[in-house]
Design a protein around this nucleic acid. Structure first.
Lengths: 358, 358
DNA sequence: CTTAGCACTCTTTACCTCCGAGTGCTAAGG
DNA sequence: CCTTAGCACTCGGAGGTAAAGAGTGCTAAG
């Protein structure tokens, strides 16, 4: 069936109404809109059509309609007005970001916090590595008889360290030889390329009986695998204010899922993508998100790194607004990370189209 | 009124029953205990007394009794059996800790996670600095003509690094001398004690014209100022499984409060204290915790640092068990941070007495 | 094609009653 | 004098029913 202009207007009205009330919306409520010069009966007919087309759903016979994920999709792709950030909104965001813009590490955390505060939904902030991640150079500092600091300089120019303790003591000589062995044998390798035979070989070469090589190798792998990716989750408890999560069980499941950080996979999927993405209900990969909505904004972050900011909420989320916020903040993050000052003007990318998700 | 031996036994039974069921407990339930050779009528009389003494409360006339905060206090101070960790329990803890015991940084986070998983309550892990925060040792790694990695080993045993770029190039010799200068002149100083005259003096001594010393000094200050206090919260969503937080509103308030990290003040109060502390209901300073229980374990953490692990739960928490867990894990954390291997044997400190809280 | 009208469906809410758990009190028994 | 059996009483929770309300689909008329 064709999606007439009128049907589109009705769908839009329904989605927006539902977004703000979280209650199934009936024909009368729509007819009440002065913009809509139609009687409730006519609207009922149209709604019946929209339901038949799979864009609306009916919780039960005598309830109003609720947008289906497909309905949301159409709304997001075609019907949604872009939310223009008001001057106050941008000022608010700028203020919040500026206050916290002390360090990139904490910036990430704070960006998440800002987003979750502004949107009242849980928010994610994370960085991921796009390309090959390897160690360029090892430095081992022998601090005292039992302590070594391992410093790994990665190919992307960042360094990380770990204090390693060897209760039985560790020889300075062993540390030095280990440094040589690792710098020749373990550089330019990804986490996958390091395997236990290599480690055992190194142990033999070194005469290492205290597992020092193994410890260093496993640290290396953990660093490489962590993908330099950091992630921060903020504002989970916001879920509890939403009517859809009044059911403690439901809330608990989602919160658990979020704190586990598993949805990272989801976000990794979106790595290639640029700009703002919206994932509605079943379009999400993770089972736990099948009836939630996710809005993601990605931004480049130098050195093969990519930042992602994400918001998780009910399917009935105010996509227009959230997308605008995320887009703006992602832009700000990018600029900050490039050392330029925080953004002063709202600059919105159009919301990206994307496949219909069944 | 005197607290007879029999009353004490009854109070103990009531508290324990309530801890495990979360339901008001009636006289019959207590009388059913074969240890208790009394009829329900007698118990009722005693319960009436205990209620008069303010140790029990009655939600409504025809419900059983619930321990009052004072009742808990007496239970915790005098009646509670110390929970001996079973072999399985210690093994479980050790296993969990060992798996995660990779790095002190993440150890903190992981300790919190372990605790919250083991106890099914939200858990806090944090370190605070009691006294001075200083650098113990500087290591400078000259990577290439333009690049130096500075590694700072702090007094608390953690290390941090930064990659420093000098676009005009930096001499290996300068780096080496700088290392000496900083190791002699800038260790054991707090952020406040480092001032610009020192930095200028160092620059002169070094013949440093590229601001290397200044860069290192400012990095040092930023690290020291960042206040080594870290805190991690885990397992908040566990609240939602508890019957007392089925009320979404209540849960939300507490969760919000916890994520804000405000109760840190609370924990700071307990800084001086050693060992395990238990704070019941109104004994908590924070309004939001007035009907929760908090168990805290503190442990020394190298020079001037102190670690705190805390668990927040309903007043009806299994204090004996939680205290045992925390005490054990705090002991483990301390040992790990001192570089010895993870603990193998349960070693419990007696639960500390403490003033009655009004 | 639109719309008023109407019968019908289904949820929500209020209200009521009944049941059971638990109490406090009294009186009898050791 | 303490313990215990018995009993009347209280009160919250479960279950059931009825009424209210919201919304629908269909029909027929404009």
């Amino acid at each position: 069936m064709e999606l007439s202009e009128r049907k589109r207007r009705i769908l839009k009205a329904i989605v927006e109404q539902y977004i703000s009330t979280a209650e199934p919306v009936g024909s009368k409520a729509i007819a009440a809109d002065p913009e809509m010069n139609l009687s409730s009966a006519t609207i009922r007919n149209e709604m019946a059509d929209l339901t038949a087309m799979g864009l609306l759903e009916q919780p039960h016979t005598s309830a109003g309609r609720v947008p289906s994920p497909q309905g949301y999709r159409i709304y997001v792709n075609e019907l949604m007005n872009e939310h223009r950030l008001s001057l106050e909104e941008t000022q608010e965001i700028n203020k919040a970001l500026k206050q916290k813009m002390s360090q990139l590490d904490s910036l990430l955390a704070d960006a998440g916090k800002v987003v979750s505060e502004l949107t009242s939904y849980p928010a994610y902030a994370l960085t991921t590595q796009v390309g090959r991640r390897t160690v360029r150079r090892y430095d081992l500092i022998h601090v005292d008889a039992e302590t070594v600091i391992a410093v790994l300089l990665l190919e992307d120019g960042t360094a990380c360290n770990r204090v390693m303790k060897f209760p039985g003591g560790i020889e300075k000589d062993l540390v030095q030889r280990m440094s040589t062995v690792f710098n020749t044998g373990f550089t330019d390798l990804t986490a996958q390329e390091i395997d236990s035979t290599m480690v055992r070989a190194a142990e033999r070469t070194l005469g290492d009986e205290i597992g020092a090589a193994a410890a260093l190798a496993s640290y290396t792998i953990s660093v490489l695998e962590s993908g330099g990716s950091k992630k921060v989750l903020s504002g989970v408890s916001n879920l509890l204010t939403l009517p859809e999560y009044q059911d403690v069980n439901k809330a608990h499941k989602l919160m658990d899922f979020l704190s586990e950080g598993k949805e990272l996979e989801q976000m990794e999927l979106s790595q290639g993508q640029e700009g703002v993405q919206i994932l509605i209900g079943p379009e999400n990969v993770a089972e736990e998100l099948k009836d939630s909505g996710v809005v993601l904004a990605t931004y480049p972050l130098g050195n093969n790194m990519q930042g992602v900011i994400g918001v998780v909420g009910p399917t009935r989320m105010d996509y227009a607004k959230v997308a605008a916020y995320l887009s703006y903040i992602a832009g700000g993050m990018q600029q900050i990370s490039q050392g330029t000052s925080p953004p002063q003007l709202p600059e919105l990318k159009p919301v990206k189209e994307q496949d219909e998700g069944r």
